[in-house]
Simulated scan of single mutants.
Amino acid sequence: MRKWKRVEGPSGPRFRSALAAHEVELLSSLVTSLLGMLDDREASAPRDELAEITGMRTGNSVAPQDDTMKRLLPDFYRPATEHPAGSSAAESLNSALRSLHEPEILDAKREAAQRLLDTLPAAGGKFELSEQDAHAWASAVNDVRLALGTMLDIGADGPDRLPGDHPMSGHLDVYQWLTVLQEYLVVSLMGGSR
């Protein structure tokens, strides 16, 4: 992967980079897996008769059970302190907000992921993105990083390395590669170079 280069043009900035064929294949596989996870979550939403009548989509009212999906679709509200009466008010609020907003969140994540797939250079090589496409890439790569980071149990303190014989050691390298890809793109989006 090359660094991103921001090029100002008459119709706005463009973002250029290059990926090797194996990087394209890896990124495509990861993003396709992400799309599958999002589709599975949407398919698990209960049927809502009112939504069918009114056209208002509703989603799951229950938080995901899988840690990876919990990271991609966190609760909307977390109380600053424990309420003496329990957490039922926070759970009720999260349930209502999740039901109302999760379909749009899933759509936005799916759209960003699909845009990334649509703009990947098929066999690797140089490519250029519009500003809108670059934002979609940043979002989709972030979602893939969150998912992979959750699977690797990466928190604020690492791990920076895994033993070479660890079954997930190669995945940590992929996570770090995604981090660099995203960081350079975000810096370019902000108008800088790194």
Rank of each mutant, 00 (worst) to 15 (best):
D48G: 09
E49W: 09
G55L: 07
N60F: 05
S61Y: 06
A63C: 08
A63W: 01
P64F: 02
Q65A: 14
Q65V: 15
Q65I: 10
M69G: 04
R71G: 11
L73C: 06
L73Y: 05
D75S: 13
F76H: 15
A80K: 10
T81I: 11
P84I: 14
S87D: 15
S87A: 15
A89N: 07
S92E: 11
R98I: 10
S99G: 15
H101W: 08
E102D: 12
P103F: 12
P103Y: 07
P103T: 15
P103N: 13
I105F: 06
D107Y: 08
R110C: 09
E111K: 12
E111L: 12
A112M: 05
R115E: 12
L116I: 11
L116A: 08
L117E: 02
L117C: 07
D118E: 14
D118M: 05
D118F: 03
D118N: 13
P121I: 03
E128N: 06
E128Y: 03
S130R: 06
E131D: 13
Q132K: 12
Q132W: 05
A134D: 05
H135Q: 13
W137F: 15
W137I: 13
S139P: 05
V141M: 01
V144E: 00
R145L: 13
L146T: 12
A147L: 05
L148N: 01
G149E: 01
M151I: 10
G155T: 14
A156D: 08
P159S: 04
P159V: 11
L162K: 01
G164W: 03
H166M: 07
S169G: 07
G170S: 04
G170P: 06
L172I: 13
V174M: 00
Y175K: 00
Q176H: 13
T179Y: 02
V180R: 04
V180P: 00
V180H: 03
L181H: 02
E183K: 14
V186F: 02
V187H: 04
L189W: 07
M190F: 08
G191Y: 05
